[in-house]
Computed example of a mutant assay.
Amino acid sequence: MSSSLPPTPISPTAPSVGARRKGPRVLPTLPLSAFTPPSTGVGEQFPLPPDPNTIHPNSVIDAHVITPSGNLSNWHAEIDEALKGRLGGAVLSLHGATPGEVESVISKASASETPILALLVPFSLDEGAPTDPPAYLANPGQKPQIVLSSTFTTNTPAAAEALKWALDKGFSIDIDVQSNLKDNDSEWEALEDLFAKAMPHESDSSVPRPKGKVILSNILPPPDDLHLPIVKLLTHPTYQAYQSHCAALSLYSNVFVKFIPPSWGSPTPPTPAPTAQMAISPVDSPIDPRDTQDKKEWKRRIKMYIGPSLEAFGYARIIYGSSPSPFTRTKSNAADWYELARESFAELGTEQEGVDAVFYGNAQLVYGSASS
């Protein structure tokens, strides 16, 4: 019988193993709250997260209410209970209105019981800089503020010319992104290239900064397929592209994103009214026990998209609105979306200052006064 010993196992520090490593392992980061010592009032337990049901904005500006006629009766019927005592104003989208209809709404806006901060008026990027603009585009500083509303489908020289004209004139512009960002990375690059041509000040300090701002819609959250499980979405190329391109777009300091109901092929799930037998306590769970399975799924997915947007744009450049893109078939009740949007931010641990910025302060900044 041989008395030889088996070969010594290779040390984990041996070069053959080290050579297989791609680099230092990236460790997950934890919020500072994870290192906060326990409160003496709760024994050995860490403090519980804030109850999302207690986090409400002090005031709300709905920055996307689609009403070509300017009539707010249907919108009021939807939001009166949800926003009772919190409503600070609205931004009306006159999508589909003719120049004559726009003039009519402008003349009546000052008489509205709800403060009208701005009117989003139709404007085409595809037609280039206007040579004979309507009379209401003669004064960018009028009240309510006139904001241009357009769509982006393809990057053309005319689109860059029109966007540069608008910003240089002092107009802010809402751009509904309708290109196929979900399945085509080059569409993101086309949008970035449009901005590079229309806003050269970011790369050339000798170029004057534009007076207007750009507000992007239909990318927070972007169109998505609800059938794709969230665990697969985390590593999916479209989600990774979303993260990187949000970061690229945020480099333009006058670009904001609008947080509106997404085009997910399903209506916004409602929030059932509480019942006498249903007590909502932060001790039990930070998740509202009234949530249906659909609503829980929506909030999980929404929070996945809020995360990269917050990393890129911060709380200071996200603006809340209740109407979905008019170019989709999405149906959404304004009160249902408000609850879903508010709870999604609250469950991410957003503090009061951040909630107030998203639901009120940023809209006040962008729409409440003439661009400067």
Rank of each mutant, 00 (worst) to 15 (best):
D185S: 15
A312S: 09
A34D: 09
T238M: 04
H76K: 15
S217H: 11
T151P: 06
D132W: 10
G361H: 07
G368M: 01
A77H: 15
L30C: 02
D176I: 09
S124H: 06
I318T: 02
Y239T: 01
S332R: 06
G170N: 08
R209L: 11
T154K: 09
Y242E: 00
Y360P: 14
I280N: 07
D336P: 06
L83M: 05
T350L: 14
E297Y: 10
K211I: 06
D80Q: 15
P223H: 11
S322V: 06
S322F: 12
E343C: 14
L233M: 05
L228D: 15
D176M: 09
G41F: 10
G368D: 01
A34W: 07
L92S: 03
S110Y: 06
S4F: 06
T8G: 12
S110V: 08
S263K: 04
E101T: 11
H201W: 06
E351M: 13
T292R: 05
S344R: 12
E78G: 13
S266N: 03
K169R: 11
Q240C: 01
A19R: 07
Y367C: 07
D80I: 15
H236V: 02
K22H: 01
I55K: 08
D176F: 10
R300W: 10
A316D: 15
S332T: 07
T328G: 03
Q145C: 06
A247K: 00
L191F: 03
A241R: 02
L125T: 01
A34S: 14
S2M: 03
Y305T: 00
F313A: 05
G349P: 04
S203H: 11
W298P: 01
Q293R: 12
H56Y: 13
G70A: 08
A196W: 02
I106A: 11
A129D: 05
P99S: 06
M199G: 12
P272E: 00
S150I: 01
I66V: 15
I306D: 00
V283A: 10
S263R: 02
I106K: 04
V91T: 05
P262A: 02
L251F: 00
A198N: 10
E347R: 14
A346S: 12
S244E: 02
A14G: 13
A19H: 10
K232S: 12
L94F: 03
P122L: 01
L72G: 08
T40M: 09
T98G: 06
G96F: 10
A241T: 01
Q277T: 13
S33V: 12
Q293L: 14
G354N: 05
S16F: 12
D176E: 10
A109I: 00
Y315Q: 15
S369E: 04
A279S: 14
T36Y: 06
M1L: 11
H64R: 15
P134C: 03
K84Y: 13
V255C: 09
G321P: 03
Q145S: 09
V231G: 07
Q364V: 15
Y305F: 06
M199T: 14
T8L: 14
A341T: 11
S281C: 09
P308G: 04
W337Q: 02
D336M: 09
P157M: 08
L216I: 06
E101S: 14
K213L: 07
G18R: 12
